[in-house]
């Protein structure tokens, strides 16, 4: 190799796989994102014939897929999914209806905070599942105890997060409105609420994930229907493929709701560039 050539070589930067914080191309992002799943499912599928695991305990992905298909076509799993989704939506709307106004008022007015916050904080530190026995005694075995558990599982955290976000609404915005002649009600309505709303939506999105956790707990512990109940039934008959199918359905639903929230965020706040991750 001549000297000139080697100089040329040094000058052309060859592409390396690992560069600190350098952006990569969109096709690469997709390929890499899909590869991780291909590897995951591939290893999982292989693990049974290779004898790494017992099929009874860890059925391969193809077995889980067929179990999933059967669940929907023959075992009316859609009803269970519907009931779970219904529980999430009803309890979550209930919690939001209480927590959003409460959080905004606590964040806006020190008097409201001083009155409610000690109460809210105390409830927040009580683990919601510890209420299951008493909820069962109060409400029996229908939907009510599950809705109640989901409600108390998220409402206090939601109120606290929204209070904190409301406190972060900049004082100058409020003072500007005051010097433009706004009264307290107008400030609440036209400054505080619109200013905090994007953060409220993000808080709701995050709390929804918590809601799914409590749903599964409620349905596993004491329920005859819903996704969790199906999984407990499957356990009794050692249908591990159905249990895993249930987990996957919960994951997919979680992603779906998250995506939905993101779309709503984008539609509600066209003036923002950042719609959260």
């Amino acid at each position: 190799m001549s000297e000139a050539e080697s100089k040329m070589k040094r000058r052309t930067r060859h592409k390396r796989w690992f560069e600190f914080k350098k952006p990569i191309s969109t096709p690469a992002v997709f390929t890499l994102g899909i590869s991780v799943w291909v590897i995951f499912f591939g290893l999982w599928e292989l693990s049974v014939p290779m004898g790494w695991v017992t099929e009874l305990l860890v059925p391969g992905p193809s077995k889980v897929a067929s179990a999933l298909y059967e669940l929907f076509t023959e075992k009316a799993f859609l009803n269970d999914v519907g009931i779970s989704v219904y529980r999430i939506i009803v309890s979550f709307i209930g919690a939001a209806l209480v927590a959003v106004p409460m959080g905004i008022l606590m964040g806006s007015f020190r008097t409201v905070e001083a009155f409610l916050n000690p109460f809210v904080s105390a409830w927040r530190y009580l683990p919601a599942p510890s209420f299951i026995p008493i909820l069962l005694m109060w409400f029996g075995t229908g939907d009510a105890p599950k809705l109640a558990l989901l409600f108390i599982g998220v409402v206090w955290f939601m109120a606290t997060i929204i209070m904190d976000h409301t406190k972060n609404v900049r004082t100058e915005l409020i003072e500007t409105a005051q010097t433009l002649g706004a009264n307290r009600w107008q400030i609440l309505k036209s400054i505080v609420i619109p200013a905090v709303l994007p953060d409220v939506m993000i808080a709701l999105r995050q709390m929804l994930a918590v809601s799914w956790t409590y749903l599964v707990i409620a349905e596993i512990v004491a329920s005859t229907n819903g996704i969790g109940a199906m999984m407990m039934r499957a356990k009794r008959f050692i249908h591990t493929d159905e249990i895993i199918a249930g987990i996957i359905v919960i994951g997919v639903l979680g992603l779906l709701f998250d995506y939905l929230f993101r779309v709503i965020h984008r539609l509600m706040f066209p003036y923002l560039e950042d719609h959260g991750r």
Partner: peptide
């Protein structure tokens, strides 16, 4: 409203357009 104030930190209301911002006080 007799004494309107402009602050050092930006106080534009992000959720309103420029025109809506300017109309805000008059609307109140």
């Amino acid at each position: 409203r007799e004494r309107g104030m402009v602050f050092q930190n930006y106080t534009s209301f992000d959720w309103l357009t420029v025109k809506q911002n300017v109309e805000y006080g008059m609307k109140l």
